[in-house]
Computed example of a mutant assay.
Amino acid sequence: MLSHIAQTKRPTQPFSGLADGIASGLLICGLIAGGCLAFRTLTGWQAVSPLILAIICGMLVRNLPGVPKAATAGIGFSLRRQLRLGIVLLGLQITAGQVVALGAAGLVTVVATLAATFLAITMVGRWLGVDRQTTGLIAAGTSVCGASAVIAANAAIRGREEDVAYAVACVTIFGSISMLVYPLLAAPLGLDAMAYGVWTGATVHEVAQVVAATFQAGHEAGEFGTISKLARVVLLAPLVMILGLTAFRTARGEHSAGAAPFPWFVVGFIAMAALNSVVDIPKALEGLTALASTFLLATGLAAMGLQTDIRALRAKGLRPLALGAFGWLFISVFGYVMVTLTGL
């Protein structure tokens, strides 16, 4: 009788263990993300991205004390599900009106700079011998919106954790340099508030970096910088769709037999942006969704860091870093040329 009861209970144990593993993994990722958000709030350093801090902290935990094997399932859940939900909620920070406010010249500058940068990095990456996954992620992060674009593009490209971490490192390094250098260049380059704002928003990697760089030149420059940056974020959706519908990620061979799966979370991103364009969402709710989006993205990046082996990053060498440097210089110069040609 007792043996029969034991046998009937035994099959439920793996499910219980899996649930515990998911919970522990989610807890680790959530603690890292919450700590990074708290750090920015307590220090007041708005230019510091909690997304970047999250992947750095995750990598430190992974490579110093290590991660319990039982938490693997929860970390994987954060990496797949929470990341994509965060990107969907990111759509609520964008409206069609914000994009239209740039005017034709501003929109042309943003779109042309993004497209030219992505193509240029892709071609130079091939010339440098950088693998297609890392090249695609660096191109997405540089041309669109930093770490958020890297993790969104990776849903289609399917790069390794090390590819994502390297790409995030590149956009962090060079975006931070731009954040410090750009305010010093506005006067020598003869840029007024609008031209400087659009140039910065169209070329600097992270949203936080754009805000920090543009508001130093005044409120008007800050507004134009933020709007042009959000216009780039809108273009994240079609870019990821294109990557998802092409064979961009077939270089490793494991998916070459068929087309890449469609990144359905991008549809959610577009739907949220459309909703925000036609419905007046209360400011309090808008703030909560923005915080939720940042937290979910940070938990996903923490999970990314928790799966990243620093030795594998070191093994990739300096060529991806050189590609990131090229992309940074290209987008900065090309964006300035576009601002000049369009008469902003």
Rank of each mutant, 00 (worst) to 15 (best):
residue 5 I to D: 09
residue 9 K to W: 15
residue 10 R to P: 04
residue 11 P to K: 06
residue 19 A to L: 13
residue 19 A to M: 13
residue 24 S to W: 11
residue 26 L to T: 07
residue 26 L to N: 04
residue 29 C to L: 09
residue 34 G to T: 05
residue 34 G to N: 02
residue 34 G to K: 04
residue 38 A to P: 00
residue 38 A to C: 03
residue 42 L to Q: 13
residue 42 L to S: 11
residue 42 L to Y: 11
residue 48 V to G: 10
residue 49 S to T: 14
residue 53 L to M: 14
residue 60 L to N: 03
residue 61 V to E: 04
residue 61 V to Y: 06
residue 65 P to F: 09
residue 67 V to S: 04
residue 70 A to R: 14
residue 71 A to I: 08
residue 76 G to A: 11
residue 76 G to M: 08
residue 84 R to P: 06
residue 87 I to K: 04
residue 90 L to I: 02
residue 90 L to E: 11
residue 92 L to G: 00
residue 92 L to H: 08
residue 93 Q to P: 00
residue 100 V to T: 12
residue 101 A to E: 13
residue 102 L to Q: 02
residue 105 A to P: 00
residue 108 V to W: 10
residue 114 L to D: 01
residue 117 T to A: 08
residue 126 R to M: 09
residue 127 W to Q: 12
residue 129 G to I: 13
residue 129 G to V: 12
residue 130 V to N: 02
residue 134 T to F: 04
residue 137 L to W: 03
residue 138 I to M: 03
residue 142 T to S: 12
residue 149 A to W: 00
residue 152 A to P: 02
residue 153 A to F: 01
residue 160 R to I: 02
residue 162 E to V: 13
residue 162 E to M: 03
residue 163 D to T: 03
residue 164 V to E: 08
residue 173 I to T: 15
residue 174 F to N: 03
residue 180 L to D: 04
residue 180 L to E: 11
residue 188 P to Q: 11
residue 192 D to L: 14
residue 192 D to G: 15
residue 197 G to K: 07
residue 202 A to H: 11
residue 204 V to E: 11
residue 205 H to P: 07
residue 205 H to R: 08
residue 207 V to D: 02
residue 212 A to H: 05
residue 213 A to M: 13
residue 214 T to S: 11
residue 214 T to G: 07
residue 216 Q to F: 10
residue 222 G to R: 07
residue 230 L to W: 03
residue 231 A to E: 00
residue 234 V to T: 10
residue 235 L to K: 01
residue 236 L to S: 02
residue 240 V to A: 01
residue 240 V to S: 01
residue 241 M to N: 01
residue 242 I to M: 04
residue 243 L to K: 00
residue 247 A to I: 08
residue 249 R to P: 00
residue 250 T to E: 06
residue 250 T to C: 04
residue 256 S to W: 01
residue 257 A to N: 00
residue 262 F to G: 04
residue 272 M to G: 03
residue 272 M to S: 09
residue 280 D to C: 10
residue 281 I to R: 00
residue 284 A to I: 08
residue 287 G to C: 10
residue 288 L to V: 09
residue 289 T to C: 06
residue 293 S to W: 12
residue 295 F to C: 03
residue 299 T to R: 00
residue 301 L to G: 09
residue 303 A to Y: 01
residue 303 A to T: 00
residue 305 G to W: 12
residue 306 L to M: 10
residue 307 Q to N: 15
residue 308 T to P: 03
residue 309 D to Q: 12
residue 311 R to G: 08
residue 314 R to T: 15
residue 317 G to D: 12
residue 318 L to V: 09
residue 319 R to N: 14
residue 321 L to V: 15
residue 321 L to I: 15
residue 323 L to W: 02
residue 325 A to N: 07
residue 327 G to F: 14
residue 333 V to G: 13
residue 333 V to H: 12
residue 335 G to Q: 11
residue 336 Y to G: 07
residue 336 Y to V: 13
residue 339 V to N: 09
residue 340 T to I: 13
residue 341 L to S: 07
residue 342 T to R: 12
residue 343 G to R: 06
